[in-house]
Simulated assay, not measured.
Amino acid sequence: MKSVTIADVAKHSKVSKSTVSQYLNQRYEYMGEETKARIQDAIKQLGYRPNIVARSLKQKSTTTIGVIVANILHAFSTQVIRAIEDVCHDYDFHTIVCNADDDPEKEKKYIEMLHAKQVDGIILFPTGGNIELLRTMKDNHFPLVLMDRLIDNVELPSVLLDNEKASSLAVEHFVEKGYSRLGIMTTSIIPNVTPRIKRVEGFKKTLKQLNLPVNDNYIKSLDLKHFEQALEDMLSLEEPPEAILAGNDLALMEMLTFIKKKKLRIPEDVALIGIDEVSFASFYNPSLTTVAQPAFKMGKKAAELLLNKIQKKDKDEPGKIYEFQPKLIERESC
């Protein structure tokens, strides 16, 4: 079956090939409504489909970006992806989403795959394990924006939360509610993941500022599979913590599972605050106090930064950090 070309559409609609090309590229400035209608009708009748590969070669752009998230199970990741996709849709760009599972090798393979597909740029939630590769990409002027996490000694635009402030808001709220023995649980900090490290640092720093003790028995950073035993040990202490901060949404869900299993009461047996606004926070019983990230604003900013780089409109310094502020949402768990 012979493929339909621009020349066929032009002949059918009685216009030039350049006019059809202008129509396909949405350049309507000098095009009458009747001409547009004829071209549209010809495209529909002939079943014309633009040759995306040919257009990409001509324009030296695939109008596609890659988004590599460290762990797509985080609610924050999916919210950011949605915001990125919304911005890209407005710019007629497509998105390819990849999940690295916090695995540097998997991250590297996805970067190489996206390069092979000739994406115009990448938004990366970095695992921290491919520093030299990222340096090479930067040196080759490949458009790249970091999200949620920082990479030392690589000057790339980065969008993230003020993570120390997130913990600080939670600690201050615990104290306002009369709690003094405070704990925090996060997923493992071994891979040097910026948010987890900064949230623990912010937690300790705020306790010291408020003249409260920093009890290492109340501070746990470990894989999710070890959460149950760690909580068992922590709450079995002679003086257990009265309130615990969940460092992210996955930590929060593990803690809620344990609390339900042990038939503990919130906040009577243990008060709780989670960093990351989860979808069920408002209707969980009791409703959950959270520290929310402005995920949609952060995703929108990352997409705009990348598209500006792709379209050569980038005027900011290479390693600028765009830090967003968290917000405490008070409910019944504290």
Rank of each mutant, 00 (worst) to 15 (best):
Y30F: 10
H12S: 11
R55E: 11
L57G: 01
L24Y: 03
T78D: 11
G47K: 13
R55T: 11
I84P: 09
K58N: 09
P50E: 02
T63A: 12
T78N: 02
L57K: 11
Q79W: 00
I39E: 00
G47T: 14
K60P: 14
I68Y: 12
T63G: 00
I65E: 04
I52A: 14
Y23P: 01
Q22K: 07
V15A: 01
V15G: 06
R82M: 01
I84F: 09
R27A: 12
A83Y: 00
N71R: 08
L57N: 05
Q59I: 12
V15L: 01
E29Q: 15
M31P: 14
D86F: 08
Q79K: 15
V15R: 02
A10K: 01
A37K: 15
I52T: 13
P50Y: 10
H74A: 00
A37V: 10
A70N: 03
T63L: 12
S61H: 01
H74F: 13
S61N: 11
R49M: 13
T63P: 00
K58Q: 09
Y28M: 08
K58Y: 01
E33W: 04
L57P: 05
A10E: 02
S21T: 08
T19G: 00
V15N: 04
Q40S: 05
E34P: 07
K36A: 08
K36H: 05
Q26Y: 14
Q22S: 05
V87P: 06
I43C: 03
G47L: 04
K36G: 13
D41T: 11
R82H: 11
V9Y: 03
M31N: 03
E34V: 15
E33R: 13
S56M: 01
I72N: 08
K14G: 07
R49L: 04
A42T: 02
K60M: 14
K44H: 10
R38Y: 01
I72W: 10
T78K: 07
R49C: 06
R49P: 00
L73W: 09
D86K: 15
K11D: 05
T63F: 15
A54R: 13
T63V: 09
V69W: 07
V80W: 12
F76M: 04
K17I: 03
V9I: 03
V67P: 14
Y28E: 06
N51K: 05
Y30R: 15
T78R: 04
V80K: 06
A75I: 12
Y23S: 07
A10I: 04
P50C: 06
D86N: 04
R82L: 05
I72F: 06
